[in-house]
């Protein structure tokens, strides 16, 4: 099993954190992983992207050029993801912010209203965790069953009180995938 995923959104949506947590959990589940953030002269509001690979085999190129799945967190990211998604790949779309339909008729499209779900849980900042729950359910590549322990090392002590809401976001994201 090898799952290559491209993630994109605007700076501040937690795309880079989502990518890191995805591979961190993958590693804890015994998979080989790579995470490569797009780095550049960053600015607020710019597009944040991450390329992540999880695999049961040694990973060759860390560059994700034809992803099996793509995460679209906002409108600007849609054309980027449509352009590189492999034939028949999975497009997971944050339907709270992306109101148009994709041109990729070959893709398996999963729509998740990440912002609405996150706000209901308590804060729009959980939108990336809603998305990661959906990604886990849709691809099956990373089970996320070790996420709670991972979050304890990922967050400083003062933020541990938010872990239950993160876990709820993951669950509701997974449930939103039909």
């Amino acid at each position: 099993m090898t799952e290559k995923t491209f993630m994109a959104g605007f700076g501040g949506q937690g795309v880079v954190s989502m990518g890191q947590l995805w591979v961190y959990c993958g590693m804890k589940e015994g998979l080989e992983v790579t995470f490569f953030p797009f780095y550049g002269a960053e600015k607020r509001g710019g597009i944040a992207r991450a390329s992540v690979i999880v695999s049961t085999e040694e990973i060759s190129s860390p560059l994700v050029s034809a992803p099996d799945s793509a995460v679209v967190m906002n409108m600007d990211s849609l054309p980027l993801c449509e352009a590189i998604l492999k034939q028949g790949g999975t497009l997971i779309i944050n339907s709270s912010l992306v109101k148009v339909d994709t041109k990729r008729t070959d893709a398996r499209v999963v729509k998740v209203p990440c912002n609405e779900i996150a706000e209901r849980i308590g804060d729009v900042k959980f939108a990336n965790m809603v998305m990661m729950g959906a990604l886990s359910k849709a691809t099956g590549a990373v089970k996320l069953d070790k996420l709670e322990a991972v979050l304890k090392t990922f967050f400083s002590e003062s933020k541990h009180k938010f872990i239950p809401m993160n876990m709820q976001a993951i669950q509701e994201g997974a449930d939103a995938v039909g």
């Binding site: 591979v23 080989e32 790579t34 995470f35 490569f36 953030p37 860390p62 560059l63």
Partner: peptide, 10 residues
């Protein structure tokens, strides 16, 4: 190179 430096792996 920048790829080796910036990417995360186990």
């Amino acid at each position: 190179d920048g790829m080796i430096g910036q990417m995360m792996e186990g």
